[in-house]
Simulated assay, not measured.
Amino acid sequence: MPDELLPYVEVTDPGYAQRAAGTFTARPHGPAVLLHGPCPRCGHATTSALVDELYRREPATVGPDPGYRTVLCECAAEHPQRPAAMVGCGAYWTLVLEDEA
């Protein structure tokens, strides 16, 4: 159950990626991939659009894309101490995206 009073904190945890990998769905959306599921920190629904030009762990000139993407909680719920113009609870995690062939 989401915790409405969880304060905004920019934080990550190894368990966030594991929980997100088990609960998020991914679907193509134009040049992006939409990831949707419950934030592994606050539990609120979040959707992230991952676009290679914006979310890249390594510069494009380093070689083949390793598939790593940093995902941020972008939930619409209120979180105390969240800076103005920000969304989410502050949680972030890294996922590896693989094509299902």
Score class of each variant (00 low, 15 high):
L34D: 01
H44P: 12
A26G: 13
T61N: 12
V51K: 15
H44G: 00
R41L: 12
R27K: 11
D52S: 13
A21N: 08
T70F: 04
D52Y: 05
C42N: 10
T70Q: 03
A45K: 12
D13W: 06
L54C: 11
F24K: 00
R57F: 10
R56D: 08
G67T: 14
R57V: 14
G30L: 02
A45Q: 13
R19I: 14
T46S: 15
T23L: 12
Y55H: 14
D13Q: 12
C39K: 09
T46L: 05
E53N: 07
R57G: 06
G43N: 10
T46K: 04
P59Y: 04
G30E: 09
L34R: 10
G22E: 14
R19D: 10
D65G: 08
E58F: 10
A20R: 00
C42W: 06
D13P: 13
T61C: 03
Q18W: 07
G22P: 07
L34T: 14
V62Y: 06
R56V: 04
Y68S: 07
A32Q: 12
T47M: 13
P64H: 14
T70P: 07
G37F: 03
D65S: 09
G30R: 11
H36I: 02
E53C: 01
T25Y: 05
L35T: 09
V51Y: 07
P64G: 15
T23A: 15
A26F: 07
E53P: 01
R19Y: 00
D13M: 07
L50P: 00
Y16Q: 06
A20H: 00
T47R: 04
F24T: 08
R19H: 10
L35Q: 00
D13I: 11
C42A: 14
T47Y: 01
V33M: 12
G37Q: 06
R69T: 00
Y68H: 03
H36N: 06
G15W: 07
A20D: 11
D52T: 10
G30V: 09
V62N: 01
G37K: 02
T25S: 03
R69D: 05
E58N: 02
H29T: 02
C39I: 13
G37A: 07
P66A: 12
P40G: 14
Q18P: 03
A20E: 09
T70A: 08
L50W: 03
L50A: 03
G63M: 04
T61A: 15
H36S: 08
L34G: 12
H29W: 09
R19N: 01
R19W: 06
